[in-house]
């Protein structure tokens, strides 16, 4: 057996690797059939897998960050570079080329991100649970998501990695690290992180008892699997706890306006002066009922040039 299955550092047992799981089985079936189209996976939340000639070119799910989130949230690509490249390249399906041409990211770096997004999405769908899948044959020229991996990932390679990740994840369950856990840091992260520990440090910083691993992955622009592995490692060292958080510990939960008037209704009501808006706005010297038109030099000059009329009647 494994020495430290919980850390995901060792090889899981081979029995677990033989079972492709529901998503793996669907992918193998449609990959072998050479599907060119879309596989709509039903589940909570499910997702979509795009195939061309039986190769997986893209996969998206609400359960894991897609290429755009991975690139932008992590700061790998700047917002400005993305916007320019998207405007220029997305309508013609050349977003990847535009990003590389503009020097926003290298070809290899981009491909790694897009590939890992596919692996992560398939893993996330399986981890969150699926109920079935609906294949739709759209042909090889159908519209693809913005950053596809072409010609695509062979399904057996994807499924091998999927089963490996599922086996690792199964080992983390003993630590309380699941897709639905909400880890919270035992103590806040201190000091500057070493570059090699940046992700780990950031995961710790986002573990506040509210966010699931998936939420942390989106917040950081990192893969779901990577984040879960960090949480498992942090939990193993006792730096985060994944048990039921102390009754929704965030202070905002108890929010009720402190100055709720004891009025008849159950809903808060406005009271004059409680917004304190006058403390924020700059003080005005204008009398409240005075003229709104500022007496700029222009107007005064014009008034002087209006002969024979009283200034109050001008205009």
């Amino acid at each position: 057996m494994n020495g430290h299955p919980s850390l995901g550092l060792s090889t899981p047992s081979t029995a677990a690797l033989d079972d492709p799981g529901p998503v793996g089985a669907m992918l193998l079936e449609h990959g072998q059939a050479g599907l060119s189209g879309v596989l709509r996976v039903a589940g909570t939340p499910g997702g979509t897998v795009f195939l061309r000639d039986g190769l997986v070119v893209a996969a998206s799910t609400p359960a894991s960050p897609g290429p755009e989130s991975l690139l932008l949230r992590s700061g790998r690509v700047t917002e400005e570079a993305w916007n320019l490249a998207f405007t220029a390249g997305a309508p013609s399906g050349h977003l990847a080329g535009e990003l590389v041409e503009r020097g926003a990211i290298g070809t290899a770096g981009l491909e790694v991100v897009c590939l890992s997004a596919i692996f992560d999405a398939v893993f996330a769908m399986q981890l969150f649970g699926v109920e079935g899948a609906e294949p739709e044959n759209t042909g090889p020229h159908a519209l693809l998501p913005p950053l596809p991996v072409l010609p695509g990932v062979p399904v057996p390679r994807l499924v091998r990695d999927l089963t490996r990740r599922m086996a690792m994840t199964a080992g983390w369950r003993d630590l309380g690290v699941t897709a639905h856990c909400r880890p919270f840091a035992v103590r806040p992260p201190t000091g500057a992180a070493l570059p090699a520990e940046r992700v780990r440090h950031e995961v710790l910083g986002k573990s506040n008892g509210r966010r699931t691993p998936r939420d942390i992955a989106f917040a950081l622009g990192q893969g779901l699997y990577v984040v879960m592995r960090e949480i498992a490692s942090l939990a193993d060292e006792g730096l985060v706890e994944t048990g039921p958080p102390p009754a929704h510990r965030d202070a905002a939960d108890t929010t009720t306006p402190s100055e709720t008037p004891p009025g008849p209704a159950g809903l808060p009501q406005r009271r004059r002066g409680t917004s304190k808006v006058n403390q924020v706005l700059p003080p005005t010297t204008r009398p409240l009922l005075g003229p709104r038109v500022p007496l700029s030099p222009d107007l005064i000059l014009r008034e002087e040039h209006t002969p024979g009329t009283d200034s109050s009647d001008a205009g």
Binding site: P62, F218, A252, T255, L267, R270
Partner: peptide, 25 residues
């Protein structure tokens, strides 16, 4: 999946209840 924070308020903008994290309810 994806919902982070939420708040209930009156139609004229007074807070009633909030499940918020980083934002000011």
């Amino acid at each position: 999946t994806g919902v982070m924070e939420s708040a209930v308020a009156t139609v004229d903008g007074l807070l009633v209840a909030a499940d918020t994290d980083g934002v000011q309810p």
